[in-house]
């Protein structure tokens, strides 16, 4: 739960910065360029230092992978970079694969809910970033 809180703070802070950039708050655009690698780094750190990493390494690495793709997809959509659609598709696909993987491994079912939450949250923001 402690890891979940940390992850929530990291991801929601990045999303908040993206919203601030979208409404043209000065200097946030530049800040996001430098914050993205830091956020990804923190996400990896939180994942690796979690207690789940000792029991299911593959599961944690997979979860870091799809979360990282969601952050990159959001960054690409925000900046309107070429390839944003492809990155978004990869992010959603990897999250869906993660759900299947967790369902098959029959471990923590709560992780499926978290993945669904990520899909809903980020798909919503990705759509909003287009307008």
């Amino acid at each position: 739960m402690q890891e979940l809180k940390k992850e929530g703070i990291i991801v929601s802070s990045f999303v908040l910065l993206c919203i601030l950039d979208k409404i043209n708050v000065p200097f946030i655009g530049i800040a996001i360029l430098f914050i993205l690698p830091v956020v990804i780094g923190l996400l990896i750190y939180v994942g690796i230092t979690s207690t789940d990493f000792k029991t299911g390494k593959l599961q944690v690495i997979f979860s870091i992978y799809y979360k990282m793709f969601f952050l990159i997809a959001l960054f690409f959509a925000l900046k309107d970079y070429p390839g944003k659609d492809l990155i978004s598709i990869v992010a959603v696909s990897s999250a869906l694969l993660y759900i299947v993987f967790v369902a098959l491994s029959k471990t923590k079912k709560g992780l499926i809910l978290l993945a669904i939450l990520y899909i809903n949250l980020f798909c919503g923001f990705l759509l909003l970033m287009r307008y």
Partner: peptide, 22 residues
């Protein structure tokens, strides 16, 4: 704790939607 987390997420969605839809 889980309930608090979900409340925070829902709050974030509402905030994001309202800010962008302005």
């Amino acid at each position: 704790m889980k309930k608090n987390f979900f409340n925070a997420v829902i709050l974030l969605i509402v905030l994001g939607t309202s800010v962008i839809s302005c």
